[in-house]
Design a protein around this nucleic acid. Structure first.
Length: 391
RNA sequence: GGCGGGAUUCCCGAGCGGUCAAAGGGGACGGACUGUAAAUCCGUUGGCUCAGCCUUCGCAGGUUCGAAUCCUGCUCCCGCCA
């Protein structure tokens, strides 16, 4: 990338970003002709990295490849305090060990996208565990009106729902991170726009050079509607096995295809492909990225066999079953094989959702002879398989 | 400090003494269909020794033949006025 032209480089970096503010800011930073410090804050409560994260991580990687330094901030201090934003159950306070383990796991996975060179990992307990006098100084940098401008705060305020003090504080703490590490650029999803901008104000108040903010669009999850997130269960993890990445990708609605192509592969949907192949190509590309070509081809072949050809997977777990007086009680067998309740198993049977070697069990049948099941592949629905071994 | 609102099955949310395992939506699951784990349509969605039985409606008691629904006391949450 030499000799780099700052204007062109800035435009290239911002090409698929939602916002890059202030205008001309990134170009000016690049003109300083030194490695920039590019910040991303992460929350160590949910350690698994999914494709949604990779949109931002991929952008960080571009900065790295241009010679800049990525500073990953692990929000260990804030996690230790616990976020009371509603339903305390969803956000348990984590112990130090858990946070450390999560942070490590996050780093491992992040390295599937990031370059270990030019990477600095910092924990914000390093500077946030401050004296109260210093906290006061931080709090004095901003007003309530300023913070409650934030979209979601404004909305909640308007309809009379709860906002905790700590939530109000979060943007300030995040902004202080930027002061502490002297961030030149901070990345985030579009939902972070307010916090990132506030970071600039706080940096200014501390007499530090203000960061440029760059926000990336939010990747829709496998449901095609809501943002990809672990808690919504609509995510594809970068550490998922090839078959999972492939299958989950094929399950996205067609309407999400364009976003996935643009945000994950940085290219438009190939116009020459048939609708079905557009998605298969995407799924293959993603498996290749996190595994390799061999795994991608294998995942596709496996998928075609199991779902297209209604075959059984090449590898299925085995379940050992001890029949009572020569008969196999199917609800019991299903419960043992797939950890479903008896009632659930009965329902599946009543709905024709149980098969042996692909052959549907007649509805209403609850018991079968040993010979009818031993060594055969039991299937529940489309996705759960187990080879039965009578003992 | 005062006043008011609320806690329901995975989630949201109806219910206001029996017809309630509890409407509706979401999600999930199953079936059909198909180019896919897409879309669409249909069905299911507390547990069990399953035409019956058992356990659920914040917690603990009480009233009643009978309570998610009424009363009392707790616990927690939320808003408003100071």
């Amino acid at each position: 990338m030499s000799p780099p032209d700052p204007a062109a480089t800035a435009a290239w970096l911002a090409r698929n970003a939602e916002d890059c503010l202030p205008a001309g800011g990134l170009e000016a930073k690049l003109r300083t002709d030194r490695p920039l410090r590019v910040k991303l804050g992460i929350d160590p409560t949910a350690p698994d990295i999914h494709l949604g994260h990779t949109v931002v991580l991929g952008k960080l990687r571009e900065f790295q490849d241009l010679g800049h330094t990525v500073v990953l901030i692990i929000g260990d201090y804030t996690a230790r305090v616990g976020d009371p934003s509603g339903r305390s159950a969803t956000r348990p306070v984590l112990s130090g060990e858990e946070i450390d383990a999560n942070a490590r796991s996050f780093q491992d996975q992040a390295l599937r996208v990031l370059d270990a060179e030019r990477l600095e990992v910092r924990f914000n307990a390093e500077w946030l565990d401050m004296a109260m006098s210093e906290l006061f100084r931080l709090l004095a940098t901003t007003t309530v009106a300023r913070v409650t401008e934030r979209d979601d705060f404004a909305k909640r305020l308007a309809d009379g729902s709860a906002i905790s003090m700590l939530e109000l504080l979060y943007p300030l703490l995040q902004g202080y991170d930027s002061v502490a590490i002297r961030a030149d650029v901070e990345l985030g999803g579009t939902d972070q726009k307010f916090n990132l901008l506030l970071g600039r104000d706080i940096q200014r108040a501390y007499g530090v050079s203000e960061q440029v903010i760059l926000t990336m669009p939010i990747l829709p999850g496998t449901d095609g509607v809501r943002r990809m997130s672990k808690s919504l269960g609509n995510y594809v993890g970068v550490a998922d096995p090839p078959g999972e990445i492939y299958g989950k990708t094929l399950s996205i609605p067609d309407t999400a295809l364009a976003d996935w192509y643009r945000l994950l592969l940085d290219r438009p949907v190939p116009a020459e492909l048939a609708p079905r192949d557009e998605k298969r190509a995407l799924a293959r590309a993603l498996v290749e990225r996190y595994w390799d070509e061999v795994a991608a081809a294998a995942a596709e072949a496996e998928f075609d066999r199991v779902f297209g050809g209604h075959g059984t997977p090449s590898e299925v777990p085995e379940v050992l079953f001890a029949p009572a007086n020569g008969l196999v009680h199917l609800p019991a067998l299903l419960g043992q094989a797939f950890d479903v309740s008896t009632s659930e198993a009965r329902r599946a049977l009543a709905q024709g959702g149980v098969r042996f070697d692909g052959e549907q069990v007649d509805r209403g049948v609850l018991d079968v002879g040993v010979d009818a099941v031993d060594g055969r592949v039991l299937q529940l629905g489309k996705r759960r398989f187990a080879r039965v071994r009578i003992v």
